[in-house]
């Protein structure tokens, strides 16, 4: 404002023109301000602060002189067997939950897209897990898996303590992950299916394509953008999963279900190694971004 005033007065019209958008911009920032303050202070700020902490020896206590240590946390991370075991579990968990979720949701969406009796029931049921608090989903499945009072052992005629068994705990929580995450995926895929132009199927039928063939050459290619978007999101949500697994197993037995975020939580809030846990978070963020980037890049190249 002051800059324009000290300069020689410009022709009237251009000045009026310049004033218009600047008033609008000011108005816009004013309207944005109340929302921006909390986001900057409690979300963007902490994120940058957290990235900074990853390069320090910060402890989560009041009395600690924090010092910059460069990549020390990173080398410690690479040498930490517990981290690698947690990373491996996280990879198995996120890939298998994402893939199973997708396959199960696609099947259900295809069924719901057909005119079947009783699909209304299935439609309502497929949304219910979405409406439940994650903690309740975890507690509910604990009741199902309960070694004494649970229904699963009774159904299968087994005597297994599912969530405490070294080799069964991870598959058991993967089932819960699929159950909990299926609704969003189903709803998104169903919306995608309903947007596939009917004419394509009619044309396919005229060309004598069977239903299997129509699925492969019409449905899947048409759904592709939706599939890429939802599987990417599912993957990110799954690898960052915390609450559900915390409720089910707290990472046990013997760390067999300790996803990276549970590991980081323990480091940060039990052992108070804030710097180390931040580096763990940063490393996971980089891995996620790399996997996503690669996946999206490949999908885009193939789509061409």
């Amino acid at each position: 404002m002051t800059a324009t005033e000290t300069r020689a007065a410009p022709p009237r019209r251009s000045r009026a023109r310049r004033r218009g958008p600047s008033r609008k911009t000011r108005e816009m920032w004013l309207l944005m301000l109340p929302a921006m303050v909390p986001v900057l202070l409690f979300s963007m700020g902490p994120l940058l602060y957290g990235i900074g902490l990853a390069f320090t020896d910060a402890r989560n206590t009041r009395v600690h002189q924090t010092e910059f240590v460069g990549l020390e946390n990173f080398t410690a991370l690479l040498a930490d067997d517990e981290f690698w075991s947690s990373f491996r579990i996280g990879a198995i968990w996120s890939v298998s939950v994402t893939v199973l979720q997708f396959v199960a949701a696609l099947g259900l969406a295809l069924l719901l897209n057909e005119k079947l009796r009783g699909r209304a029931v299935a439609r309502v049921l497929s949304v219910v897990p979405w409406a439940m608090p994650p903690v309740v989903i975890g507690l509910m499945w604990k009741l199902v898996y309960h070694p004494d009072a649970g229904i699963l052992n009774d159904l299968l005629g087994t005597h297994v303590n599912w969530l405490a068994d070294f080799s069964l705990a991870l598959p058991a929580i993967i089932v819960v992950g699929v159950w909990a995450g299926m609704p969003q995926t189903t709803v998104v895929l169903l919306a995608g299916l309903q947007n596939v132009p009917k004419e394509l199927y009619e044309a396919g039928e005229m060309d004598g394509a069977g239903s299997w063939r129509r699925f492969w050459s019409i449905t899947l290619p048409q759904l592709r953008p939706v599939i890429v978007a939802i599987t990417s999101l599912d993957f990110v949500w799954n690898i960052n999963q915390f609450g559900l697994v915390y409720v089910l197993t707290q990472g046990g037995p013997g760390g067999r279900t300790r996803l990276p975020m549970l590991f980081a939580y323990e480091e940060a809030f039990r052992y108070r190694m804030a710097g180390y846990a931040s580096m763990l978070g940063l490393a996971m963020a980089i891995v996620v971004l790399a996997v996503l980037g690669l996946y999206l890049w490949r999908q885009m190249r193939e789509a061409r």
Binding site: L47, A264, S278, V288
Partner: peptide
Amino acid sequence: PFILIIIP
């Protein structure tokens, strides 16, 4: 990941 934000 939430851990990067929750610690700070």
